[in-house]
Write a protein that binds this DNA or RNA. Structure first.
Lengths: 153, 153
DNA sequence: CTTATTTGGTTTCTTAATGCAACCATTCTG
DNA sequence: CAGAATGGTTGCATTAAGAAACCAAATAAG
């Protein structure tokens, strides 16, 4: 059977997971954010099988998350770079990283700091328009008419 | 061959993906944030096969993201509820939802608003300690000694 | 109280995805 | 030119996913 499609469930989250929701895609994006661009470098840094990497890179390119740039002088030698869409996943990757560090402990010797100040980042949080942090209990899920759907819990 | 393990790669992101990195887990969490608690309700709202749902719920419980609460009066009748760890994924789910809406258009009739004001949420963003928004180019990746690793791209 | 239905699974079977290793054409390097 | 590296593709074995059938306990209907 074909894997279930997530892009027609009428849900933005499902649609996002359809593009980057598998085991490897977000790790490839994360690695690209660290500066990795070449096929072999992704392969070695992630320890991913070549055919899987090949498949994931193709899908990321198809979905506009990365681009394949020909950097060979006479022929084929490629770099995979993040697009604006791909770089915009920085929020998602960082939120995921911080969540893991908060609940599973520091598995990573690496740290992210503000390039200007050298200080660690603030925790990524959902905020209202005044900049106040909101939990899932502080929001309401409404339809297009503004009617509430269900209660969060 | 067994699926690659992500929890011993020395990467927090990989560790997070080991828990919620598959196609269904985050959707189950998202649905729980909408208020869904019962097995059949997850099944119908997500359109997921029963054995897969069973497996995902077990894994989420094992990882401390959800708890199974016995609500039967004399015997077994269960509810699955988010733990604090699970509710803390709100940031990740919201960031993913906003990313998808920004780049793939509104696939969702549902909207999230501040329960107090009724107004839409601010975009989830990575910020420094002064509250300024940072892109991936504004951060540096350093090791435990503060030495820079590679350049982001 | 008895029967029907719902709930929360498990089992079986088929198809798809993953991982590993081998192979291959082109392209740099020495 | 020889040899290594790059960026794949192919084949095979194992695992996961999806659909449907089946099932025991618990609840609802009458």
């Amino acid at each position: 059977m074909t894997r279930k499609r997530f892009d027609d469930m009428g849900c933005s989250v499902a649609c996002a997971l359809n593009e980057v929701g598998d085991w490897w895609s977000l790790l490839v994006v994360k690695q690209a954010m660290l500066g990795t661009r070449r096929f072999v470098d992704f392969q070695h840094s992630l320890g991913i099988a070549k055919n899987i990497l090949c498949n994931r890179l193709s899908r990321l390119v198809d979905n506009g998350v990365m681009v394949r740039v020909d950097v060979g002088e006479h022929g084929k030698r490629y770099e995979y770079r993040l697009t604006d869409k791909g770089r915009d996943l920085f929020t998602v990757v960082t939120a995921l990283r911080q969540w893991s560090e908060r609940w599973n402990g520091e598995k990573d010797t690496m740290q992210l700091v503000d390039r200007q100040t050298g200080k660690p980042l603030a925790p990524v949080a959902v905020q209202n328009q005044q900049g106040q942090t909101l939990t899932v209990r502080d929001v309401r899920f409404v339809d297009e008419d503004g009617k509430p759907l269900e209660e969060a819990g």
